[in-house]
Design a protein around this nucleic acid. Structure first.
Length: 217
DNA sequence: TGCCAGGCCCTCTTTAGGGCCTT
């Protein structure tokens, strides 16, 4: 049995990831500049991975202004391929979560492909879940929804580890709210993935009818 | 800095358009 599985064969570990990059999409030549991953078990962060990556791709000034990551910093960083191989080993077969997962999943796949490593991981998205669970929030940007829920804000947003920690905190809060408000006993990754794809009017019914163990696998 | 990309979601919708979210 995988170390990330509990005794029912369900994933007890979720890997929360955040990338800093040189742009919006690998399709336009953007590459990762920093990656951070935190492992969450039972609402607790149990391990952390963080590294800058050297890809040789130039970082535009506005990205440096946003993230604080400079071309000089990544020039001294380890090669991206080695970092990503280490990141893949760190994640193992744990399912993954990111804030706006479509963005991070693209870079996860792209960077692992560069490193010649398969990327079969399933992603769930805290933006989509946040819109489902907290429709009263006026903004679902990571910093804003964290503040809205009264969760601790990172001292340095737009760095990978700080953002991954905030996303992990948001994930844990959503799991707690599913337990307390919806009485879901074990709100695991598969249920979160189902919720994020569920049409909003059906969310309540899904949770009210929730009794299917495989949903939390 | 503001645009781009792309998927999701809402609505004054569905033969569409525009906002959100990520760097």
């Amino acid at each position: 049995m995988s170390p990330s599985m509990d005794n029912r064969g369900m994933h007890s570990t979720i890997a929360v990831i955040d990338f800093e990059t040189t742009g919006m999409t690998p399709a336009q030549g953007a590459r990762a500049t920093e990656v951070a991953i935190v492992l969450v078990q039972n609402g607790q962060v149990v391990d952390r991975f963080q590294s800058l990556l050297r890809t040789g791709v130039w970082i535009p000034p506005f990205i440096t202004q946003l993230t604080g990551i400079t071309n000089a910093m990544v020039a001294e960083a380890p090669a991206a391929e080695g970092v990503m191989r280490d990141a893949a080993r760190f994640v193992g077969d744990a399912p993954m979560v990111a804030h706006n997962a479509a963005f991070d999943a693209k870079f996860w796949t792209h960077e692992l492909t560069h490193a010649d490593v398969p990327a079969p991981h399933a992603f769930a998205c805290t933006v989509l879940l946040s819109r489902r669970l907290y429709p009263e929030a006026t903004s679902h940007k990571l910093g804003n929804i964290v503040q809205h829920l009264g969760l601790p804000r990172a001292a340095r947003a737009h760095r990978a580890l700080a953002d991954a920690e905030m996303a992990a905190s948001l994930l844990t809060r959503m799991q707690q709210d599913l337990r307390t408000h919806w009485r879901v006993e074990n709100p695991g990754h598969a249920l979160l993935s189902t919720l994020q794809r569920c049409a909003k009017p059906k969310v309540g019914k899904l949770l009210a009818d929730y009794a299917t163990p495989q949903l939390v696998a």
